[in-house]
Design a protein around this nucleic acid. Structure first.
Lengths: 209, 209
DNA sequence: ACCTGAACACCGTTCAAGT
DNA sequence: ACCTGAACACCGTTCAAGT
């Protein structure tokens, strides 16, 4: 009744499944061993230790991140489309993105998108330092937005929430009920993301033409 | 030789010191007890458990976050100054910001800044939904940037780094050596931050005048 | 080359018992 | 009201011993 010999790939696959479903804190060496039907110590032979297991996981999924195909008529539109695609890719793998982030591989993960951005910014007429700054501004903007967004989802109930904070009178917005109401309403992240990126991109690319 | 009776404040202070110095993972109940010269279980009497201890710590430091005084002649400048002040405040407490973030209290922490932003955006002529969107765009931008920045600092050595990635020929930037060089150079986060915020703010506030 | 159980040094938390 | 040690159920990791 002995199981077939354990392989490194098998370990990685099981670990990836655990992380994808329940997050990295759910990946314990003992739990993983139970999942695989082996002794805990066998895992150590194949992957070294927990730390390098996570490293391998992150490595593997960074490599999995797909190509980015810019869409749209103008460089502005294409940059925005790259940003939106990237946001979607990151949002699809919340736990893994967090792990990539923690391990400082955000840079690497972002490379395909960065190359696309370089191309578009160049097409918009930006050169040299200015172009590099525009690319990085967009890069920081997208990654930052996704991080903030994830945080909001993980902590859906704020105490007190913006509703309470802005529902009360005697605030700076008291003479603008529409503003107060808008701030009390929940954020629409998709919309806010697009608005922000568009605003940033319009401003950054304006200096190229 | 008995120590004076333990107080909740004493526990919080010692815990805060540990976290500030070495991060939350360095805060173990046993280590804290050793620091305080009591039994581990005494701590439980005062703060419940580790989770609510961290909650209390976060609560306390969110309350500590100071006022924000906008500076500058135009609303644009004042919004940028708010953003820069906020960035500095967040950067001064890296571990605690991360904890606030993890606990989903980013909203609350951001409130003083948000009120200042509302005031400035209003002064710039924005109203209602539009004003709210501008405020939130800046908010997300700042918090996101700080998060990305922190990540970069924690993982100073990227493998491979952007230098290697952009130093090689045959990239999209191969006809623009200045661009390739700029992307291979390390990021100046302060400068990038100011550039980005300025670009975003200019674009957002333009529609108000 | 690959797997194993025992053991070590850690965790957070509970609880009955003290004063 | 406050403190204590013992105990429980977890961790990750090492290592000598097996095949």
């Amino acid at each position: 009744m002995a199981r077939p010999p354990l392989t490194r790939d098998e370990v990685l696959a099981a670990a990836a499944a655990l992380v994808k479903e329940h997050g990295p804190q759910a990946l314990t060496m003992r739990g993983l061993a139970a999942e695989l039907g082996t002794a805990v110590t066998s895992i150590y032979w194949h992957v070294g230790n927990r730390e390098s297991l996570l490293d391998a996981l992150v490595e593997r999924t960074v490599a999995d991140l797909g190509e980015i195909r810019p869409r749209g008529a103008t460089p502005q539109e294409r940059v925005v489309s790259v940003a939106r695609t990237l946001r979607r890719q990151l949002r699809d793998r919340p736990h893994l993105v967090a792990m990539v982030h923690e391990r400082g591989l955000t840079e690497r993960m972002f490379l395909p998108a960065q190359q696309a951005l370089v191309h578009e910014v160049h097409a918009a007429g930006l050169r040299g330092t200015r172009a590099a700054e525009a690319v990085r501004a967009v890069q920081f903007q997208v990654v930052g937005h996704v991080l903030v967004e994830r945080n909001r989802e993980r902590a859906p109930v704020q105490r007190p929430g913006e509703e309470d904070l802005w529902g009360a009178p005697d605030t700076a917005a008291e003479d603008d009920r529409a503003l107060a109401r808008a701030l009390a309403a929940p954020v629409d992240p998709e919309r806010l993301f697009t608005t922000s990126v568009r605003a940033l991109v319009n401003s950054l690319l304006a200096s190229g033409t």
